[in-house]
Structures are given as structure tokens and as C-alpha cells.
Design a protein around this nucleic acid. Structure first.
Lengths: 150, 150
DNA sequence: TATTGTTATACTCTATAACTATA
DNA sequence: TATAGTTATAGAGTATAACAATA
């Protein structure tokens, strides 16, 4: 016990919560865009992919359907997103950004990226490259492994 | 705009919340140890460093003092940690694991590490090494950048 | 019947404010 | 006065259960 694989897992378990908290605190500190991390990620998803359904949002964030619904409620209340009924299947909701939402998403992305980038400045260029590679290794492993509806 | 540094920051912003959610969901699913991620991290800290003060816990987790206090309340209620009054400075609390807490911490660590390790199995050995390096690059950058008391 | 989504409700985690005790 | 910690209270975020509408 304590294989290289286990050691790697331990490192992740120690470091990821640290970073996550740092991101949340940073976003809360700059209150201008007033978005939680999941709200921001939802806007980003809608920006990449118009007419996203609620189920797709829930899947992307790893949330249950009711949680995603409430999250979208808040975005809609803030005039950042709108719900339309899907023409082909009237059960589905087609979500889209409003112009306000798009602007907010871009501003928040620039802000968060800037803060993170500042924290990364102590690293050398080669370190940053390694980091980027590592993130790209992790992304597919963890995409779509969140909460299930039941 | 879109420097390598910015790109790296964007990657982190996309990937870290995914992993964090996966870890939380995993820990919630295996209800035997019944620990939240911050509770677990606190036990781990106490395991590495006996007689830790509450302030140190708060600092380590990036929590405010009241939040840390309540978190410790729950650990104490669960007989996993105990509070003693510091002999040199009676304002301070010296926290320590109980035997139950130590056992629970070890079991949970093995469990969480095992789950994560399983998710990492698709990676090659060289990828895992890169990942480990990346975590070690990030750790010092984000250690101690959480919430402030005021 | 199965699927998509919403509403109702409750719980966990965390914060801010006010306080106590010790230095 | 300043520091370490606790108590009281409130808010955000998420889950489960029950429901409505469409397929």
C-alpha cells in the first residue's frame, strides 16, 4: 500500500479542495458579477452550446435535476438566461443566454481567469505547460461523474 | 488576451470543480465513515500534527473561526476529536484525535484514495507522474489563501 | 408507462455579528 | 486593548419526495 497511483490520489485529495476554496473565495470577494461557481459554469455552458436542456445542465454540473432547476431559476430571475419550450419535444426546456448573461459570463470569466493567472505567476513557463497538460489529463476522467437523479 | 497563463487558468477553472464534486459525491455515497470533505481534512491535519489550535484548523481549511469551531463541534460530538485547554495560553484550544478519530481518518483516507485511484487507472504511469508533479506545483500556491476572519 | 422538469421541504455548510474569557 | 474561541442567527446550495405535463 502506497503505490504511485495511491500517492497521486492522495495529492489530488489534498490539493483540489484548497484550489476550489480559493476560487470560491475569490469569486465572492469580487461581488460585481455576483455569480456562484456553478452559476458561472452554467452560463459558460450555455455560451458554448445554445438551446441546452436542463438535463444537460444537471449532467454537466453533476447536480440533480431539482437543484439545476433552482439554479436556473436564479439565472432567469437575474435576466441572464431564458427558458423556451423545445419545439420538437414539449417536455424539454431549451435554455439560452440573454445578452446580459453573455456579457456577465464574459466579464466573470475574464475576472476569474485573471485571478487564477495571478496566482500562477510564480511558476515557470515549463511548469505552466505541465500544469495545463495535467488538467487536460484529468478533464475526461472526471467529466460526468457527479450526482445521479436516482 | 489568451496567453498561455490565461489558458492554464481557464483549464483549472473548468476541471477543478468537476473533480471536487466527484470527490464529494463519492464520499457521500460510501456512508460508512460519514465525514464531509472538510471534516476529513481536519482529521488528517490532526493526525499529522497533534495539539493543533482551532485557528490553525481554520487557516488550513480556509474557513472562518466560527465555521471551524462548529465543524470541530461535530467531530467532538462524534467522539473523533477532543478539545483540551492549552497549558501555556488558556485562551487556546489544543485539538487532538481520539483513537476512534484516528481509525476513522485512516479508513476514510484509504477509501477516498482508493476511489480516486480507480478513476486514475486509465492513465499511463508517465501521465500519473506528471499529475503528481502538477499537484505538487499547485499545493504551495494555494495553501493558505482561503477565507479571512475579517 | 417513461421521461422532463418543477414545487415543496429539509439539511448541511458557511458566514457575520455579538459575546466570553484570557492575555 | 488585543487575541482565541464560542454562541446565535441567517443565507446559499443541494438533496429527496411528490407532483404535473408530455411522449
Amino acid at each position: 500500500m502506497e503505490s504511485p497511483l495511491d500517492r497521486c490520489a492522495s495529492e489530488i485529495l489534498e490539493v483540489i479542495p484548497l484550489i476550489m476554496r480559493s476560487i470560491r473565495t475569490e469569486m465572492r470577494a469580487h461581488r460585481s458579477p455576483e455569480l456562484s461557481v456553478p452559476q458561472f459554469r452554467t452560463l459558460a455552458l450555455l455560451g458554448r452550446n445554445e438551446a441546452t436542456s436542463l438535463s444537460e445542465v444537471a449532467e454537466h454540473l453533476g447536480l440533480t435535476l431539482p437543484s439545476a432547476s433552482k439554479l436556473v431559476d436564479d439565472l432567469v430571475a437575474g435576466k441572464m438566461a431564458k427558458r423556451k419550450i423545445d419545439v420538437g419535444d414539449r417536455r424539454r426546456v431549451a435554455l439560452a443566454l440573454t445578452p446580459v448573461g453573455r456579457q456577465k459570463m464574459r466579464a466573470t470569466h475574464a475576472l476569474a481567469r485573471g485571478c487564477l493567472a495571478k496566482m500562477l505567476t510564480p511558476l515557470t513557463t515549463s511548469d505552466r505547460t505541465k500544469l495545463e497538460q495535467a488538467m487536460r489529463l484529468l478533464q475526461p476522467l472526471f467529466a460526468g461523474s457527479g450526482a445521479k437523479t436516482r
